[in-house]
């Protein structure tokens, strides 16, 4: 069961059972985006409140598996209080974490580099890449966050 243990780390199950920052924010002033995983029907809503280029509040809500929900929960704790620029960096690192492992699984020599070391708890999600179908679960909240940024740009 080593693959499974790797996928379902304790911290992931903890965020799944006790999601942080669950809920909604008032729009406006907050912006909201909705994400869907058409494969499994998971749905997520992400609300962010940005003041002076800093994410001062974030909430997520929805239904989904342990991977999508815990990833969204960990995302909220990782980006609260960060500038938009810092968040872009975290998103980039997280997506690197997902794709670098994909490459190393395919026989490449790349390993997790320094670009992903600042992810903290999020590193626990690296087991996901051994289960390619679940990468979409792990990135659902993140893609929805990026949609929030597009909303911000439009406003």
């Amino acid at each position: 069961m080593s693959g499974l243990e790797d996928l379902y780390r304790e911290i992931i199950l903890d965020h799944y059972r006790n999601p942080r920052n669950q809920g909604e924010l008032e729009v406006p002033p907050a912006v909201m985006a909705e994400g869907f995983n058409p494969l499994c029907g998971d749905e997520i809503k992400v609300h962010i409140q940005v003041d002076d280029g800093v994410i001062v509040d974030i909430k997520f809500d929805g239904q989904g598996c342990s991977i999508s929900q815990s990833s969204a929960s960990m995302m909220t704790t990782a980006i609260t209080g960060k500038t938009l620029e810092e968040v872009e960096g975290i998103i980039y690192s997280f997506k690197q974490l997902m794709s670098i492992h994909e490459k190393s699984l395919e026989g490449g020599s790349e390993t997790v580099g320094s670009s992903t070391t600042g992810l903290g708890d999020l590193q626990a999600l690296q087991g996901v890449v051994k289960f390619p179908v679940r990468i979409k679960c792990a990135t659902l909240g993140w893609n929805t966050l990026e949609q929030c940024f597009e909303e911000l740009d439009e406003n």
Binding site: L7, Y8, C40, C65, I67, F131, R134
Partner: peptide, 9 residues
């Protein structure tokens, strides 16, 4: 337990 997690195990 979410169906996706059930089917994984």
């Amino acid at each position: 337990i979410h169906p996706h997690d059930v089917s994984q195990v």
